[in-house]
Design a binder for these strands. Sequence first.
DNA 1: TATGAATGAGAGTTCATTCAT
DNA 2: CATGAATGAACTCTCATTCAT
Lengths: 202, 202, 202, 202
Amino acid sequence: MSAREKILEAADELFGSTGFDATTTREIAAACGVNKALIHYHFKNKDLLLEAVLDRYYEKLGQTILGSLGGEGTIRERAHRLVDTYVDFLAANRSFSSIIQKEAAAGRHVDRIGERMVPLFQTGTTMLAEAYPGARAGEMAAEQLLVSFYGMVISYFAYSNVLEHLLDTDPVSDEALAVRKRHLCRLLDVILDSLEQDGGSA
Amino acid sequence: MSAREKILEAADELFGSTGFDATTTREIAAACGVNKALIHYHFKNKDLLLEAVLDRYYEKLGQTILGSLGGEGTIRERAHRLVDTYVDFLAANRSFSSIIQKEAAAGRHVDRIGERMVPLFQTGTTMLAEAYPGARAGEMAAEQLLVSFYGMVISYFAYSNVLEHLLDTDPVSDEALAVRKRHLCRLLDVILDSLEQDGGSA
Amino acid sequence: MSAREKILEAADELFGSTGFDATTTREIAAACGVNKALIHYHFKNKDLLLEAVLDRYYEKLGQTILGSLGGEGTIRERAHRLVDTYVDFLAANRSFSSIIQKEAAAGRHVDRIGERMVPLFQTGTTMLAEAYPGARAGEMAAEQLLVSFYGMVISYFAYSNVLEHLLDTDPVSDEALAVRKRHLCRLLDVILDSLEQDGGSA
Amino acid sequence: MSAREKILEAADELFGSTGFDATTTREIAAACGVNKALIHYHFKNKDLLLEAVLDRYYEKLGQTILGSLGGEGTIRERAHRLVDTYVDFLAANRSFSSIIQKEAAAGRHVDRIGERMVPLFQTGTTMLAEAYPGARAGEMAAEQLLVSFYGMVISYFAYSNVLEHLLDTDPVSDEALAVRKRHLCRLLDVILDSLEQDGGSA
DNA sequence: TATGAATGAGAGTTCATTCAT
DNA sequence: CATGAATGAACTCTCATTCAT
């Protein structure tokens, strides 16, 4: 693995666990055994290092999401697949939600984050609104639904630290994640059922 | 307003907008017009200042939530009231979700946050499980439902920065918040309907 | 002496001997026995420290020059007094010419330096041109004469390091300075004589 | 042009405009489009690069000065020619006076500078003292005269930045330089006249 | 309570320089 | 000759914190 990649890995890990501000370049360098100055050689400064870390994730995430949305099956099937895939992605990339969580709230990298999410979000709303007339506006508007599901999924990871205190098991264990996925899909069904009754199709 | 209170207000504001790490004591002092050293006189150190800020919120929040849960009406009515109240609370205390967002993810004040949320959370699960047998376990377990709703509500605020890019309006305007509340209550109804069909009661 | 003054003294000394860029804040702090951070507390940053050092000199210099120009006597007497006074000032403030030398050439503090010198310069040209019609324009224009004398005086100090190699004595010893002053006053006389022959008065 | 020469040109330019300390090897490399490491390959280190830059100038300058001194004509004619030539040289090599200015004052390359100037200086004093008995010692000693003229000439360039503020024209424009040269030659005449009256010859 | 001055620790960053290729 | 990667040292500057008053 190149030094550049080692730095990215270490930064990813530390930004996720400790936070961007609380992570020092010294720590990153130490964590991956490279010289502190090399970080600036490869990434110019700490901010751009974070951008590089985020870009790597969005690259992967974009492919993952579009892959699960774009396959075969009914909307409902694809939605199930998306929930499963997204949970799996966040589970496999624990730092990602953590970083997003902190940096989105901090408002510092909002532009970059927004930029990456807008196209994914719009793909979702379009698909949903086309399939379900009831989701075109009003209380069940596609945007609201997407925001809600996004919140259900990411909060679980973002607050996993806190959830350890609330639930009695490790919230990111395989079993707990399986439970979470079944719950989310069940909610999805309930909501889609309701949309269909209001006069939609699949 | 006492100097102590002025410091709390300024810290609240700045921790919310800029983040704990990125906020300096000098900025806090400047924002409220007191001497930097006075912050340490009143709060001992920066960490304890954050705790004081959070405590103030949890005090208010506990009363607010228990108030809306404890009043009259059916479970469903009380749940609607809770959603409305919680959204209003977060809207009225914009810094709160922001701070929680960042600090929960950072894992540094997790204990304190967990400590405060556990009783509220348990009150909620107990009520839900008592009212709906279907929520006692499985895919619609009360814990999962609470986590989901919590995520739907708080994420809306936590990501309001990003949502500005996704939606076309200010996500925390009165109108947008009213829309959001109607959406959440509608989802609540759909879910509670589903729980009742599976064999519950109010 | 206050810490602030001690820092100014040390910075003055080191900027003069070593140069602004080559002097570190560590060295300044060590030289006057204060904490490194205190420099930034009192002067905000290294650039402003240099400005403070220069301002101190221009304050003194302004009084000195105007004092010697403003007293009694003919133009010629006052000019002699000015040359003597200026040489004495530069001898007593060895760092000053050194700093000016380097920073003026670097072009970084030119504005500040220019700002301070313009009024002194204009006072000089006005006096000279009024007294000697021949200095109103042409080859003996007052501006040219002032620039020439300024160069003769300051270069002696600015290049004193090099002059040690050229002359066989210490160029800033009392004797050498006395010799220099006599030389400069003699040149002054020769030049003023010439101006008077061309048709001026005293 | 070889890489070595491109580096010398770029270093010359940057040392002159920005100063030795404030110029980085990266800037030099960027300015002439070569790799940073190549600078060390060709010049060993930054100090030696400066020496190479200065050496180049002293080579040219030595020829120029000796050429103008050595030709035909009276002392007075040769002195006029020297002033003209030196002004032209400094005008054509703007970086030179700037570098000398800063580095002489810094005292770091004093030895090298002194070494180069001593022979030129001694040639000058010898010629002057031989021609004018009055310049053998005392107020009009040849050393003092040379230092004065050197100061008049070089200061004009060294402080050209500041002179922009004092005069109302660009001090290094062709016209301004012509004015300056006429002024200097006039002073030269006045001084040589005086020396002759005191009992010398041509 | 309140403050200006002071401090130790450490932040991010930049530098000239080296080295393997 | 030339280069991209790498490094140790040092830089300016900022931080939370302390303390005498």
